[in-house]
Nucleic acid binder design. Structure first.
Lengths: 237, 237
DNA sequence: TTGGCTATTGTTAGTCG
DNA sequence: TCGACTAACAATAGCCA
């Protein structure tokens, strides 16, 4: 017990304010680590539950021991979502390879069959087995190249498109959320004013001239810890 | 001021103990999220500094907005370290893809080179040209199959993930749009009521105020953001 | 949405076992 | 390492602007 009710003499040690730097004493540091780790895990869970957020927390101790918390079913999921989101934040993910003109030049004046091949792939017709069986080795080789390049292009464009859609949706969400906030604000003001008026109504007329509606500008102060990007490349696999 | 030193009557509102479940009121939830988010970030940094730990924290709000903190120079590094640690813990280094078991059965007692293929794919090493050149035709064929299957899996999982995010976002949009509509409805009712009351109030000096108000509200209530949540299917493959 | 305020609850440093 | 305890301190709910 540190409280010493001894008459005349008080020798109470006053807890100091914890400087924000690495704790020197190793034992004390480990102890603090253990306590604070539990504390922050609790906070993380509270945040996840109370606010319906997805929270992931990874901590390595000085000794390299790993501690983790994830509000979702799997930490991997959250990390995956994180990667994805970062991909969106950085713009599109595709590194944009342009490799289709290569082959065209090589075989511009090739056999008629070669051209056919080209056409059929351009038109996106489904290839029938009979057609393919009619090709010689060289033609099959060309077809293979064409298909490979085509596949790459398809995948790129598809990704571009999806990511665009994702970005658009995210914008929509942000916009809606903002609108929502504004609406709520205005409504609360309205109801306040109405309340006021009702109150005044009983006595006299209103001279209350509210400026009120000067709500407009929301200053966009960036949260201190918000994302800034460096590099990202949606690694899947 | 909540402390009312009025003689005889005390009507102090007592703050309750916060049940640990999702906060119902959306506005309150967002507010709490904002505050607690800052709180936990602070805790994270304190832990990192005081105890010399490596801390990474990722938070998604209900609306899908990403917040992150990383005590190291890059979140990616920490995640990489996490993956590594987990990989070690799980006894395998690439937890993402499992594309090797198919072939095991086929060529369990195959050439030593075949096993090498298997190993290299297990370890997720990048294939070097020298390695590939050392393979015979049959082995190359096997490798080709492995890669094809792997590619398919990668594409599948990637698509799954992205589409999941899309769906989630769409849901958020729908929800927000609904909230928005409700708010607008309520507000127009409110403003109508107020308008009536103002009229009944006896037309005096308050016309200017009333008009300005009405205009402002109209603007806010106007659907300046139209969402068509129907056509966002964007089907792929 | 941000910040300030205050009463209250929650966290934890220091200590002993 | 951990649990328990307590005083000091920090975080924050609810409210307003």
């Amino acid at each position: 017990m540190r409280f010493i009710p001894e008459a005349g003499e008080l020798e109470i040690t006053v807890r100091e304010k914890m400087k924000m730097r690495k704790i020197d004493d190793m034992t004390a540091r480990q102890l603090t680590f253990s306590k604070r780790r539990r504390g922050i895990f609790k906070k993380a869970e509270e945040l996840a539950v109370l606010c319906d957020a997805e929270v992931a927390l990874v901590i390595f101790s000085t000794t390299g021991k790993l501690f983790e918390y994830s509000s979702s079913s799997s930490m991997k999921d959250t990390i995956a979502r994180y990667d994805l989101q970062r991909g969106i934040a950085n713009g599109l993910i595709t590194p944009a390879l342009h490799l289709q003109p290569e082959i065209n030049g090589d075989q511009a004046a090739d056999t008629s069959k070669g051209t056919e091949i080209n056409n059929s792939s351009k038109q996106g017709r489904a290839m029938r087995d009979e057609d393919i069986h009619g090709l010689n080795l060289e033609e099959l080789h060309q077809l293979e190249k064409i298909i490979q390049v085509g596949l790459s292009r398809v995948l790129e464009i598809k990704e571009e498109r999806i990511m665009g859609e994702l970005a658009r949706l995210q914008k929509t969400v942000d916009q809606l959320a903002e609108d929502n906030a504004q609406l709520k604000k205005k409504m609360s003001m309205l109801s306040r004013q109405k309340h006021c008026r009702v109150l005044l109504d009983g006595q006299k007329d209103s001279t209350a001239e509210k400026e009120g509606m000067a709500v407009d500008i929301a200053h966009a102060a960036a949260p201190r810890f918000e994302i800034k990007s460096s590099d990202t490349s949606l690694k899947l696999g």
